[in-house]
Design a protein around this nucleic acid. Structure first.
Lengths: 192, 192
DNA sequence: ATCCTAACGCAACGTCCGTCGCATTTAGGG
DNA sequence: CCCTAAATGCGACGGACGTTGCGTTAGGAT
């Protein structure tokens, strides 16, 4: 919708407006968090008129969706360390970093996903893509003969990664990198 | 704050107003979800004036905090099945039920927790209490000699329960009771 | 039974949010 | 270089939200 119909007018001003706005979103997010993120504030900071924001992005969630898609890395794939346990530890460390750096766009997106279905859909698509790519660590382990061929990849990834999200986002308690590593090991051991 | 200063006037009308309002909150929640939950709508449905709601509960999140505390079961404790695995399966089935029944007050509270710190604090308190009580299943297993005495209870519970929350709430995908059971077994096996 | 005061109802107000009609600018094609 | 249409800027509007001052009701105590 937003980044889709670029066929008509990819123009210079439009692109500049977009980058100005997204930069303003990131700044506002860093200062006031998601609950303080308002279209009026983004308009004031970016120098773009409110009406334009309402027309192109519609809602605050729409702004975040665009920000998420602008930052999406299409070439991402999990590190190859040679063992399932090592791969899962590497994955968990990436998630750990994404959840603890401020401002966490991931956290803001999750907050937004509870308000509009657009944001929820965008986040679901993003995560489905990431988990599908990450399943590679399981198929590599199968290819090495490390684990059975009928291993449920999603279950393994869920066992490894879910505790991080749950602890940090829902329980709102700190999680050390050691704990993240430990859950990766538990997940690896669960299929041996 | 809300249920605290009952010393002054626990009166009949006040109590009636409270139960009317909380009932309206639950109904509105069931019909329109959290994003459609507005103070004006609750006022209209309950027959209580808007001003009263603003004075006593301040925000929508305040209403949900009160609803959560009103529904809190102070006598809750985990079922005793005789084995760690059985206990964890029972716990996971309770969580599974709480997350899948509509309307899920838990889901609404999580949504609210991303908007006001009051709701976030209330939910954190609730979960800390629940996890503290649930740690009993681990100490019982230790007492039976089933697992080592230095077992990290929180880690075990996190391994068992986090996948449910993550799958249903953040990934927004269905989870069968069998899958819930399976994650309970993985957690139990992780400390043997 | 009467008084006192906390709790509630009521109306009006200012503010912010989102939308609309219209003028202006700008990108891209002839 | 000009012409057209898309994108943006601009002001005004209606409505919802949250607040405030004041009058009214009802519970609890004497």
């Amino acid at each position: 919708m937003i980044a889709g119909d670029r066929a008509s007018r990819p123009g210079g001003r439009t692109a500049r407006v977009r980058s100005d706005v997204l930069a303003a979103v990131e700044s506002e997010l860093a200062e006031h968090g998601y609950d303080g993120l308002t279209i009026g504030a983004v308009a004031a900071r970016s120098g773009v008129h409110r009406t334009t924001l309402y027309r192109r992005w519609k809602t605050v969630a729409g702004l975040l969706v665009d920000l998420l898609e602008a930052g999406a890395d299409d070439s991402w794939e999990p590190a190859d360390t040679g063992s399932l346990e090592g791969d899962l530890i590497a994955v968990n460390r990436e998630i750990h970093a994404a959840l603890t750096t401020r401002p966490s766009i991931t956290q803001a997106m999750i907050a937004a996903s509870f308000r509009t279905t657009d944001a929820a859909d965008a986040l679901t698509r993003f995560w489905e893509d990431r988990y599908a790519r990450t399943a590679l660590v399981v198929s590599r382990a199968v290819a090495r003969g490390e684990i059975p061929s009928d291993t449920d990849a999603h279950q393994v990834l869920l066992t490894a990664t879910a505790p991080l999200y749950h602890q940090v986002i829902l329980l709102r308690q700190p999680m050390s990198r050691d704990q993240a590593d430990r859950h990766a090991r538990i997940a690896a051991a669960s299929v041996r």
